[in-house]
């Protein structure tokens, strides 16, 4: 039953994380990734046997009890070690992403993720909606600093002409 509930919880965390990631903006991305990290860690925790209460701290005499008995009376230590590793690694990665976000903000002054501004301008983008495109002229003035991102857009008239020329 606990496992079932844990599975539900992991599912909710995954769902919320995914929902956030798919939204616009770097902040939501970071939030979503944090939720996903929690979800993965809990999922890993669910791979061991869930024992309430007994931390895997043995005493000098317990060895003689034998492995089988020990395993029923203590929490599963291996997933804990794995999760600890995973937690720390994801902390490092999250910190790095946070630094990336910070630097991107410094460079562009925008919370938009790469490609999202392009998506606004790029008319052939499947995810862009009409209403957003209409707002473009206002937005574009504000984003001259993002010109480089426009270079990332494939749908330049010049580049298409160039391709056709080929």
């Amino acid at each position: 039953m606990t496992a079932f509930m844990l599975a539900l919880l992991v599912g909710v965390l995954f769902a919320c994380g995914a929902y956030l990631i798919l939204q616009r903006g770097q902040i939501k991305l970071v939030l979503g990734l944090s939720l996903l990290t929690h979800a993965v860690n809990l999922a890993l925790f669910g791979t061991g046997t869930l024992t309430r209460g007994a931390p895997p701290i043995v005493s000098e005499e317990t060895e003689s009890l034998g492995a089988a008995i020990l395993f029923t009376s203590y929490a599963d230590p291996l997933p804990q070690a794995l999760i600890l590793t995973a937690i720390v690694i994801s902390f490092g990665v999250t910190a790095f992403i946070v630094a990336l976000v910070f630097r991107r903000d410094a460079l562009t002054g925008s919370d938009l993720l790469p490609g999202e501004l392009a998506a606004v301008i790029n008319t052939s983008d499947p995810f862009a909606e009409f209403s957003l495109r209409m707002k473009l002229p206002d937005a574009a003035d504000d984003y001259d600093i993002l010109q480089y991102e426009l270079d990332e857009v494939y749908d330049h008239p010049e580049s298409e002409a160039e391709v056709a020329h080929e």
Binding site: F14, A15, A18, L22, R24, G25, D111, L132, A139
Partner: peptide
């Protein structure tokens, strides 16, 4: 990080919900 005017325009809610629910099932 500066908030963005364009970010307010929420799009594709249905798709996101779909992916989210699917991911929930996955977890």
């Amino acid at each position: 990080v500066r908030p963005d005017p364009a970010i307010e325009l929420d799009r594709r809610r249905a798709f996101r919900l779909f992916v989210a629910i699917a991911m929930g099932f996955f977890g």
